[in-house]
Design a protein around this nucleic acid. Structure first.
Lengths: 226, 226
DNA sequence: CCGCAGTTTGACCAAATGGTCCAGTTCAAG
DNA sequence: CTTGAACTGGACCATTTGGTCAAACTGCGG
């Protein structure tokens, strides 16, 4: 038993991987995302993950070193995607457009990847034991950088003056809310319909109003047609 | 052993309660709030709760029927307080003042009761199995009622037209974010200082700008001094 | 000081669960 | 077809954990 699999840390494509290995590992990771996002780390069991992936428990352990290794892997895969929308906010684009697009992209992620959003939320709620480093390292630096960009836009009169970091927090909060608190939203709204279209309109309107320059800066002063 | 304690369901003060019973039950509930909010239901153990309350595990079980009974009790106590700020939003008050006060009260709760906020968030994240009834009953009705009030204010030109329910969602999201995601906020901001003063200023400004009537309705048109 | 309801806990129990072993089965290269 | 490596899963193990029990202890009204 050569025991090749189980690459707990970083994924290196070079390490030879059978077609079957790739498929099974993906199946396990997807099942794990399901289970972890629904029950949290402690609430999830290997049996749940195995069953959902269509494998036996020992077989899951053949591909991953253990429960924690699976969790770590799932989480690190999420994080790549998670920062993307903020990263792609362009300092050279039109300020108001860029920020509204960021809100839109973030809301789109809440709609497309609710499991990821919930898992991330759970992890942070419990003190982010697993991703502490990333938060105080990569994320902090990124926010610092983008906050400067936003401050620049404010100073140039392109958008209204706002506290840039708290603006970012409010964007995270409002968009992720539609994934993380979906249960509550459905119960308050009545489960009949998709809340996202109205949410998109509301949030776009809200941030447009917040950010519209107070005095006409150089072009169209109004936010847009509601 | 008459086994008087353990009133799992509603709390009825009439049922005789020793001074010692009251004290111990409170200690257990407080310890449980600590532990449940930090680890979730599954992640919490009776031993953690017992230790934190300064009791032995069997002793805890003497006062409560079981782990779930403790959890239910903690949760139901929270919910009373939780809806309070929204309840006290007065339809006859000044619209903008009422809404800004609501935001302020809600943020204050995030600051004063972060454990409660996190426990509530965890519960909803996992599908709110324990409080489903309350959400789709009491809460839904309350939101329905307050949404009508807000719509009335909009129609009367007292505040700008907004989707009332999504406005409420955005208030919940932004305020609770400072409790639920506190770990992330500290890491992004640098743990040095209290984020709440700036958060209060930012959120007040944001909602004031969102809600300020577009055309002067009948009195002071501007939102206030920044 | 007695007696008993009220209180406390060490010792235990059974189920759940992360993880291991090893005897098989499948697969693909030669 | 052969053969060794890759893969699979039934049986098993150790720990954790929610919960039980009976024996012991405490405090107070009579």
């Amino acid at each position: 038993m050569p025991r090749v699999p189980s690459s707990a840390s970083n994924d290196r494509p070079p390490v030879r991987q059978t077609r079957i290995q790739k498929a099974k590992r993906e199946a396990i990771l997807d099942a794990a995302l399901d289970v972890f996002s629904q029950h949290g780390f402690r609430g999830a069991t290997l049996d749940m993950i195995a069953t959902r992936a269509g494998l036996s428990k020992p077989n899951v352990l053949y591909y991953f070193a253990g429960k924690e290794a699976i969790y770590t892997q799932v989480l690190s895969q999420i994080l790549e995607t998670w920062l993307d929308p903020l990263v792609s906010m362009d300092a050279d684009g039109d300020p108001l457009q860029e920020l509204r697009a960021y809100v839109g992209r973030k809301l789109e992620m809440a709609r497309e990847f609710p499991r990821e959003s919930r898992l991330f939320a759970t992890e942070i709620l419990q003190g982010a034991p697993e991703i502490e480093g990333l938060l105080s390292g990569e994320l902090r630096k990124l926010v610092e950088e983008k906050a400067k960009v936003i401050s620049g836009w404010s100073a140039a009169g392109k958008i209204a003056p706002v506290h840039p970091k708290h603006l970012i927090f409010s964007i995270w909060a409002t968009t992720q809310h539609y994934a993380d608190f979906r249960t509550q939203i459905d119960m308050v709204l009545g489960t009949g319909e998709d809340p996202f279209p109205e949410a998109a309109a509301f949030l776009d309107h809200m941030f447009a109003r917040l950010l519209a320059p107070v005095q006409a800066p150089d072009s169209t002063p109004s936010g847009g047609k509601p």
